[in-house]
């Protein structure tokens, strides 16, 4: 039985009411905007309800909306394999207190993805067994995918400044 967006929307809004700040549909994808504190009950409801069964966590990712409040957003994509449907959960995370409850106890697959979101955006997942850097070196400073972090750390050599850049380039010795 395939679920449709209307049914899921009615189910979730009927269960949680005002906890769902916004239920939107864009290009066929159903998304709920929620608060960090409501994440665990909603995810548990989506996973464990017999008629929904969103048992497969597709992805967790962070987005940095610099200049907006809340600044960060953690986006969860959940798939129901039996009902062939996907929902998106968007959790707004303020910059002053970037904490989200971890869903590793619900899905071990979140372990790496939450570590990645911490590594890239500095979002803290409370209750994660070992939240540390995963892709960047452990002594790295800052969280690179934030919008206020630079992309490039080295000057690019073009023909007009080639000699200057080349003179500064730390060429290796034997």
């Amino acid at each position: 039985m395939a679920l449709d967006n209307e049914t899921v929307k009615a189910r979730v809004q009927g269960q949680f009411g005002a906890a769902v700040l916004e239920a939107s549909e864009y290009r066929g994808d159903l998304a709920f905007r929620i608060q960090p504190d409501d994440l665990l009950p909603i995810v548990l409801f989506l996973r464990d309800s017999a008629d929904l069964q969103y048992i497969w966590l597709a992805s967790i990712t962070g987005v940095d909306y610099l200049g907006r409040d809340p600044r960060f957003e953690v986006v969860y994509h959940l798939r129901s394999l039996a009902n062939q449907h996907m929902v998106v959960l968007k959790v707004g995370v303020p910059e002053a207190h970037p904490h989200v409850p971890s869903i590793v106890p619900l899905w071990p697959t979140a372990t790496y993805q939450e570590r990645e979101a911490w590594d890239m955006f500095g979002i803290v997942f409370d209750g994660h067994p070992d939240l540390q850097r995963i892709l960047l070196p452990e002594d790295w400073d800052g969280h690179v995918q934030r919008k206020d972090e630079p992309l490039v750390y080295e000057e690019v050599a073009f023909s007009f400044n080639h000699d200057d850049v080349d003179a500064q380039k730390p060429y290796a010795k034997e």
Partner: peptide, 12 residues
Amino acid sequence: FPTPQQVAQAAR
């Protein structure tokens, strides 16, 4: 497909 209860058990 596995049931949610089985997944919850495995996740623990």
